[in-house]
């Protein structure tokens, strides 16, 4: 056998054919709409448990509720990983009637954040200003994160829409770390680390993070030192949370979520809802999108798995080629 030739062949794949392989392999699971189940890690489950804890606390203390603060710290460029996390977290909070406060930690997320909040709030009939609020951009960041210690309204004199924050009902009760049960930074930047540095270190605020996989490994030490309550890392973390929330949804709402959503606004008076935030009805396309968004991360995971194996095989092929050549040269 001509080993040298085999070695040459194994090392000769062109860039473009590698690219083409990637295109094809990633597309197949997507076309077949395969969605996988994934295992749950402790890091993700502890965020879920913490949100449940806030829910139970609110049940017991209806006059002294706690809110969840969501900081949307990712640019649209990494929404593939972070947006499913945000979706799942918001669904969890709204399903459990937990007040949600949000802002964008990075400028490019400003409009994305409000779009996501309104869209998920619509699924549960939550009202802007009463059940949730969006404060626009947390810029400059240091000032923003410090103001939460006393009163965030000093920093944010108006919300995203330009309304005076002193006139917004939800802000009367929730404006500082005192009433925030959990702060979650969903981020593609180093902002989650800054929340640890300021909110957690200075003010003992419970902080959790949802980060892109690039940043995930770096944050593991914070989990062990309990500076982070929990962490969702990359699409895998998002898929886990999504799975946990879907399970809860089945328990709270029932098996047929689509039908539930379809009927949701039919029984309600549309004049109760301001159109500025969302239209109180679902079109069929929207329903399909809503159902798809419930398995967004898990659908991606199948393609993800295929791509991982593809690259592992490529690396092995290249190494086998390399060793054959080295041996016979």
């Amino acid at each position: 056998m001509n080993w040298e030739k085999i070695g040459d062949f194994l090392l000769s794949f062109k860039k473009k054919s590698i690219y083409l392989g990637m295109f094809i392999l990633v597309s197949i699971p997507l076309i077949m709409k395969m969605s996988t189940r994934t295992y749950i890690t402790e890091e993700v489950e502890s965020i879920y448990d913490k949100v449940e804890e806030v829910y139970e606390y609110n049940q017991e203390n209806p006059n002294d509720k706690q809110a969840i603060f969501v900081s949307i710290d990712f640019a649209p460029s990494s929404k593939a990983e972070t947006s499913p996390m945000l979706n799942a977290l918001l669904r969890h909070a709204f399903m459990r009637d937990i007040p949600v406060l949000g802002w964008a930690g990075v400028r490019t997320a400003a409009d994305y954040g409000i779009e996501r909040l309104n869209s998920v709030a619509k699924e549960y009939g939550k009202k802007y200003g009463e059940d949730y609020i969006y404060l626009g951009i947390a810029y400059p960041f240091l000032q923003a994160v410090l103001s939460l210690n006393s009163d965030v309204r000093i920093f944010s004199s108006t919300d995203y829409y330009g309304t005076d924050t002193y006139e917004i009902p939800i802000m009367k009760q929730f404006h500082s770390y005192n009433n925030i049960g959990l702060l979650v930074s969903i981020s593609s930047t180093s902002l989650s680390e800054l929340y640890i540095q300021y909110s957690n270190t200075l003010f003992d605020q419970d902080v959790a993070a949802g980060v892109t996989a690039v940043n995930a490994a770096r944050l593991y030490p914070y989990l062990q030192s309990d500076q982070l309550v929990g962490m969702m890392g990359g699409l895998k973390g998002a898929a886990e949370y999504e799975q946990l929330v879907n399970k809860l949804e089945k328990k709270v709402i029932g098996e047929d979520v689509k039908n539930y959503l379809r009927e949701f606004y039919k029984k309600k008076d549309p004049s109760e809802y301001e159109k500025k935030y969302y239209e109180p009805k679902f079109t069929e396309t929207q329903l399909i999108n809503k159902m798809n968004s419930r398995k967004l991360a898990r659908m991606g995971m199948s393609s993800q798995a295929v791509a991982h194996f593809y690259v592992i095989i490529l690396i092995i092929i290249a190494n086998v080629g390399y060793f054959i050549k080295r041996k016979y040269e």
Partner: peptide, 28 residues
Amino acid sequence: KYVRTPLDATMFSLLAFYISSAAYRAFR
């Protein structure tokens, strides 16, 4: 939604290709 976001996301997704081909060529 349809211009800024897809451009930004696609620009970064090119990295998937570069990292795969670099892994094939350089990881020994």
